[in-house]
Amino acid sequence: MKTTFRNLVMAAAVLMQTGMAHAEGGAMGVFVATPEQLSVSESASKTVGVSQVNGQSAQVLYGDPTKAGLYTVLLRLDAHKRIMPLSHPDSRFVTVLSGTFYIGFGDKYDQTGLRGLPPGGIYTEPAHVNHFGETRDEPVLVAITGYGPSGTTYANPAEAPKPGK
């Protein structure tokens, strides 16, 4: 099951790069790609449902996270980034494609509660459940799949990233 899900996410990424998939959830072809073949360089500032910390880039692979329906977003985080506790209105699955991502759950950032997930690791983000995370000495690439509409709410609004920061 884990391999099938990972292959579906990678397939969606390649289709988007070749223009074969439709952002609104149109027909999707079959293909296979490795994480090294995926390129994510667009700013995440306009992508709904991600943390918006500086050093993030994102690409919507399928669907539209602002609308009702299935979506997948490929998210790249630079090394040494911290995501403070936040939640989303929709439930999501996250698959680590490259690097090690450290994830924890709760209303306050607690480094002792972080669990490192290597490539192939999967975790869920249940709707309205606060979670937090960080990258360490390497960038991380994850695929987020949910059923929108999505959004992001910080547990402590003062910890939300400021535009351009």
Rank of each mutant, 00 (worst) to 15 (best):
M10L: 15
T72A: 12
L75R: 00
Q111C: 03
H80A: 12
G69W: 01
H128A: 12
P149L: 10
G116N: 04
T135D: 03
G164V: 08
A27G: 08
N54V: 09
I144P: 08
L86V: 11
S41N: 12
T100G: 01
D107S: 13
L114T: 14
F101L: 11
G116C: 04
L86M: 15
E36C: 00
T95Y: 08
T18N: 14
E36Q: 14
G164I: 03
T34H: 05
G151I: 06
P149C: 04
A160M: 05
G55F: 10
M84R: 02
T152P: 02
I103K: 09
G69V: 01
V48S: 02
K67I: 03
S98W: 04
P65R: 01
G49K: 02
H22I: 13
A11M: 13
N54G: 15
Y62T: 01
V50G: 02
V14Y: 06
R136G: 07
T124N: 11
N130K: 11
A27F: 06
E36R: 03
G29C: 09
R136M: 12
R92G: 13
T47L: 00
L70S: 12
M16N: 13
H88M: 07
G63M: 01
G104P: 07
T152N: 11
A79D: 02
L97W: 00
